[in-house]
Design a protein around this nucleic acid. Structure first.
Lengths: 209, 209, 209, 209
DNA sequence: GATGAATGAGGGTTCATTCAT
DNA sequence: CATGAATGAACCCTCATTCAT
């Protein structure tokens, strides 16, 4: 494997475990069995390495979801459940990029959305403006009754559930098991999560009472 | 104001803006117009300062929610909506602790739950084991049909929505406004969010199809 | 016990274990359960605390040896062995000053003589000029044939043996026991040491061949 | 000269003058005209720098004494005087390692043996277990009548004399000269010291009276 | 007589980065 | 293409000391 790839692989592991600023280039290069200077040589600086790692997962995710959306594009309508499934599957498929099979992408997304200045978030909307739009458009058909703005917010409620759950998956799994002697397997969890967010997307506030 | 309080105030601002590890003690003490050594004197080390900041908000939140829960304790049953309101109000009320009125607590929670090792998360469950339990218990009555384990997961879906939305509130608000010339005000947003999570909590996966 | 005495007691323990510069006032005051500022209050600064600790043992030693020398002053002559015994006993008797019974005095002497600049060594000769002289004078009678200058050097050879051995006593004891399943008890060690230094004092270089 | 060598040279000077803990890395690097971080880069940390400095002298001493011992290995027996000479010469020859010609090795030995925890002392016995043994073995032939354990102690009495005297040489020289208008030159001092320790090694305690 | 609070200086160490090779 | 060496800046923390109380 090339040094550059080894660096990316090591970096994503470190970022996953400790976040961006708590990870030092020394740790990364040590893990990659590469020279300290190699990061600067291959990526310029730390910031660009972070972006390279992020970009790798983001483009993979984008490819995944576009491919899936293209398949159903012709058919007139698509159910909300199908859309959520596509979203979740596209996220989960990014695990293929990592040797360890961990959900690095979700962790990176969380880190990106946690940044108060939001460099990475801006990067997302700059580089991938279409995909988000397409999903929202399809949702608007699948779950009628919302304005574009209302849907914008609902989708972020949804993202919160998904990002948070998948990010804490392992920890929640352990707690669940130790406390209730039960934890859902992956497909079961995804079903529950899908049900939750669809239930949420469909719920009208006037219907609460 | 005492140096200790100035340090806490400065620290929470910094943590809010940049996270824990990206914030240096020099920044904090500079902001607090205090000596670098003062952190060590008053808190021992950086870790304990983080905990002190966190603890301040967490205990305030805990007090808030307990007070509200105590009020409705006698009444036979309580609606899910009321419970969610109590939760949200208890979170929002912590803004009183901060001079700037920013939602520091949510940011701290997000930081805490983003930690892969989860020191702070463990701290939460160690120090405040009851409140979470109480809310879940009341929810079990308000939304019947779930086992404790199922509810455990649903509540975390809910937490994801709430934490994520409130954490990104300002940013989402700006986007919403610039893109749709509309953004919900606070009470409206809370209503939507409440509707979403209650819809999610109630949704059964078999009902999806 | 007064704070001042507690400080001295704590300080000598710390110096014994780690030397002067590796011991911080915080350690000392913590051990003494006293305030950090108490050292400066009672002794002025760290240097003067060191001197106070040293002075305490040095004056005790001086009293010990003067008392013993006074007893034999009248008798015409005194054997070298007796003199060495007096020296060793006067050193060992300083253990009474320490609660733990450790040979703090020897450790302090070693620390003092290890200083390249020799502040403490100068302090010794300034404050206690007579005792050393008296011992050398008596030795000159007990072991005739040496000039004062020659004896000056021989006495320092002697001091090296005594200081080094007593300082490393415990460590050497442990090694001896683990390696040879034998270690001399105190009186036996003192006999051997006495024999060694007297043998050394008496040995003339021309007699070597 | 390489930075690494400059650091070692500067460090040994500083340690010689002030001991280990009283010497700061900033002093060392300033003296070496190197960056503060260079110590960390080349040695890892301060402890390992200390060990590197110590190791340099210790291995040189070990080489010196082994070379000398090898020369006399074939001859049947060797006198105690010869052995002591070999020891002293091997120590003094380490002066060649230092530009200033000071007896750094003896100072380092004293510092090492002064440490109460004895990290460096343990390092010596771990890394150079044979040389000490060889000297003791030869001494056992040269000075018959002692058990191995007895000789172990006597050798340490000897080490005390040698280390102490050589360590304080300069200071004692000055005092001797100012007080007696006389001080032995190097070869004369070594003769006296040799006579002393041989006299000590040979002296039996029953023979004292 | 004693202490809690505070401070400037400096401790060892680690940072991202540069550069000659 | 890659690296060992080196660096200035900054890291957290601890130092001895001061001072108002």
């Amino acid at each position: 494997m090339s040094t550059k790839k080894k660096l990316i692989a090591a970096a994503e592991k470190c970022f996953y475990e400790k976040g961006f600023s708590a990870t030092s280039l020394r740790e990364i290069t040590k893990r990659a069995r590469a020279n300290v200077a190699s990061v600067n040589y291959h990526f310029g600086d730390k910031k660009q390495l972070i972006q390279a790692v992020f970009e790798r997962y983001l483009s993979a995710f984008d490819n995944n979801i576009r491919a899936r959306l293209d398949l159903i594009q012709s058919s007139e309508s698509v159910s909300a459940e199908t859309l959520i499934r596509i979203l979740l599957d596209s996220i989960l498929e990014t695990r293929k990029l990592s040797a360890s099979g961990e959900l690095i992408f979700i962790r990176l997304l969380n880190l990106a959305y946690s940044e108060q200045q939001g460099h990475l978030r801006k990067y997302v909307v700059r580089e991938y403006p279409d995909t988000f739009e397409k999903v929202v458009s399809l949702l608007q058909v699948a779950i009628p009754g919302w304005s574009r703005a209302e849907l914008f917010w609902r989708v972020h409620f949804l993202m919160g559930s998904v990002f948070f759950t998948l990010n804490s998956w392992q920890a929640l799994h352990d707690i669940s098991e130790s406390e209730f002697s039960y934890a859902p397997d992956e497909s079961r969890l995804l079903e529950e999560l899908t049900a939750f967010v669809i239930g949420g997307l469909q719920a009208h506030e006037e219907k609460i009472q």
